[in-house]
Amino acid sequence: MSTEITAGGKPFVHHHSAHCESGVTSALFRDKGVEISEAMIFGIGSGIFFGHLPFVKWVGLPISTFRSQPGAVFRKAAKRLGGEFVTKRFRNPRKGMDELKRVLKAGQIVGLTTNIYWLSYFPNRFRFQFNGHNIIALHEIKNGFRVSDPVLDHPVDCLTEDIERARFAHGPLEPHGFMYYPKEIPRNPDLRTACIKGLKDSCNMMLRIPLPIFGIRGIRFLAKRIIKSPETLGFNEACRQLANIVRMQEEVGTGGAGFRFMYAAFLQEAAELFGSDDLARLSQEMTAIGDVWREFAVVSARIVKQRGQAQDNFSKAGGLMLVCAGREEALFRELNIVVRKLKA
């Protein structure tokens, strides 16, 4: 944790977060005097999810996601907490940069959507073309900006050129210089109503999407594919895809186990807010499920590393994922009942 001064002379406290989007959103709320944690934003914005998209290829590998689509957490959390935000996209990079400088000069910190490849303060190994990374610009400095990147544990400097490239990068999910900052945020947002909305939405997303690739059904779908993958794809390609799933699960900014621990943290906070023992118990169950996901990562890494020499094999990895699916299904079904008893 470290403190910075914005152009408006206000102190800004940088919090280390696990996920970029929820981190940025909670920092924007905190800047307006509303103390709210990252996990809370993640839960209210219904960030938890699962999806496996075998037909969408990213560097030749299918996408598995453990969170809702980029931008959704911010949008939903802002709406449910009654915050009014100014959001802008630009066609012209020059105009986009001028507007950013103007807003920063007025003393307002700004959330930016960027391409992680062009943010040169990351080590090379973390840099890949992904257009959904969120950061906060704090104030202008010589040749650049002071930037608070929530996945780092301290604010950094970034060159103007890099920021411009990152904001106006092309590719899937083009950011178009997307920038957002709060216009008006209620002093005391109604956390309880917002939590209930977020919980209900998460239950629906995990249980009720009528497509076999999303939610709990998506986990089962992927698990079965993993079990069959050595036969259908050949051992090497199967390893490559398995490694990719683990990468999506543990890569920068999930808080561990594909956001499951972060969601458990949210359930814990919600349990305190409502004084509900049911939620506290569900939080513990979510932690246990997260541990199974971690075990899946460890087993998968061993399979890839030892080339199937040891007793670990694809059916074991897929089996662990089926365990996760079963337990998550039970958890969300129970949550669906518990949430209806909560009073706003």
Binding site: H16, P123, A265
Partner: peptide, 18 residues
């Protein structure tokens, strides 16, 4: 390269911390 990742974990009292 010195970058620390945030993980959510339980402390002794069973509370989540970063």
């Amino acid at each position: 390269e010195g970058i620390k990742k945030g993980n959510y974990a339980l402390d002794d009292q069973g509370k989540y911390v970063m």
